[in-house]
Computed example of a mutant assay.
Amino acid sequence: MTQITAAMVKELRERTGQGMMDCKKALNAAGGDIEKAIDDMRAAGSIKAAKKAGNIAAEGAIAVKVADDNKAAVIVEVNSQTDFLALQDDFKGFVSDSLEKAFAAGYTDAAPLIADQESAREALVAKCGENVNIRRLARVEGDVIGAYLHGHRIGVVVTLKGGTVELARDIAMHVAASNPQFLAPSEVSEEAVAKEKEIFMALNAEKIAGKPENIVENMVKGRINKFLSEASLVEQPFVKDPEIKVGDLAKKAGAEVISFVRFEVGEGIERAEVDFASEVAAQLEASKK
């Protein structure tokens, strides 16, 4: 029979939240198999979905649903641990069901959807062996709404005042490709401008050393203007026709870009660094004991 070590009890306790003695008892009954112990504890009703061995859910999928009248849309991100799972039917079904429920209920953020889908999430976690999380959700309403999905990893919703759904979708495609930080220069915070100025000064310290103050000011102004253009959607050259800016494209069609939402799978999630060489070495060392 496999010897039950303190490390095994500790891992099971961390993954299930159960007491030390309960974890030791479950491991003894499962012959030291942690995954079986978790399944047995779930079957006994003592836990729901256990944490999956320290893995970070930073993969997954983005999904978007637009109303038939193109005046409302919901975009959601659901995370998995691997991209492989994100391509499987069970995961896709969970994402689709979550999106439909959020849209029908009129949810404006993820919290109520997470509560609604907890039982379904637990069942999926138990079945697939990976951590699954509904991470975020946004609901958008407006005059004309268009959306674009780039595979399952990037989703964008754009709201226009005037114009057409086709134009909104074209601009959404541009947002997916160019990833603007702001809608317009007026939305760029003073902090962001100050930070850009600080970076410019640091990178060009030698170049500007000894130059007259007015020359330096003009150099900084030029860099800030370039930053505002690169970071602002309406100032960016349209990807399909770089000769025209996105804002001018909309204006030419009698429209105005009101807002955009862009979700990309895993953005902002700190991913664990895996050192495979060290991992293999550790396994080899352990096998010698």
Results as ranks from 00 to 15, higher is better:
218 N>G: 15
226 K>R: 15
236 Q>R: 04
207 K>N: 13
212 P>A: 15
207 K>L: 12
228 L>N: 07
233 L>H: 01
209 A>Q: 11
223 R>W: 09
239 V>S: 04
211 K>Y: 06
226 K>I: 01
235 E>H: 02
222 G>F: 10
232 S>H: 04
244 I>M: 13
219 M>A: 11
228 L>K: 09
212 P>V: 03
246 V>D: 03
212 P>R: 12
242 P>N: 12
223 R>V: 01
242 P>M: 06
210 G>F: 06
211 K>H: 05
216 V>C: 06
227 F>T: 08
237 P>K: 02
207 K>V: 14
247 G>C: 09
241 D>K: 10
243 E>H: 07
223 R>T: 05
227 F>K: 13
238 F>P: 10
208 I>C: 07
229 S>T: 07
238 F>V: 11
237 P>C: 06
240 K>W: 00
218 N>T: 08
243 E>M: 13
233 L>N: 00
230 E>C: 03
209 A>I: 05
220 V>N: 12
238 F>D: 05
246 V>A: 05
222 G>M: 11
234 V>C: 05
231 A>L: 03
211 K>I: 05
219 M>C: 09
230 E>W: 01
206 E>V: 07
227 F>L: 13
220 V>L: 13
218 N>M: 14
245 K>T: 13
210 G>W: 11
246 V>S: 01
247 G>M: 07
211 K>A: 09
208 I>S: 11
232 S>W: 02
235 E>V: 00
234 V>S: 06
236 Q>I: 02
206 E>M: 07
222 G>S: 09
234 V>A: 06
243 E>I: 04
235 E>D: 10
231 A>K: 07
247 G>Q: 07
239 V>M: 05
234 V>D: 08
210 G>K: 10
227 F>M: 15
223 R>S: 15
208 I>V: 15
225 N>G: 09
211 K>L: 14
216 V>P: 04
213 E>A: 15
242 P>W: 03
232 S>F: 01
219 M>V: 03
215 I>L: 14
213 E>G: 01
221 K>Q: 15
225 N>L: 11
236 Q>Y: 03
243 E>L: 09
214 N>V: 11
220 V>E: 09
211 K>F: 03
228 L>D: 02
240 K>C: 00
228 L>Y: 04
238 F>I: 05
206 E>K: 15
212 P>C: 12
228 L>V: 10
240 K>M: 08
247 G>A: 10
223 R>F: 12
226 K>V: 05
223 R>G: 13
223 R>P: 01
216 V>L: 12
242 P>Q: 09
209 A>G: 05
209 A>H: 02
231 A>M: 11
247 G>F: 02
222 G>H: 14
224 I>W: 11
237 P>G: 04
221 K>L: 13
233 L>Y: 00
241 D>F: 08
214 N>C: 00
230 E>P: 00
243 E>G: 14
206 E>C: 06
224 I>C: 07
220 V>S: 13
244 I>T: 12
217 E>V: 01
214 N>H: 09
234 V>K: 06
238 F>C: 08
222 G>R: 15
207 K>Y: 07
210 G>D: 09
220 V>C: 12
229 S>C: 07
240 K>D: 02
230 E>F: 06
227 F>S: 06
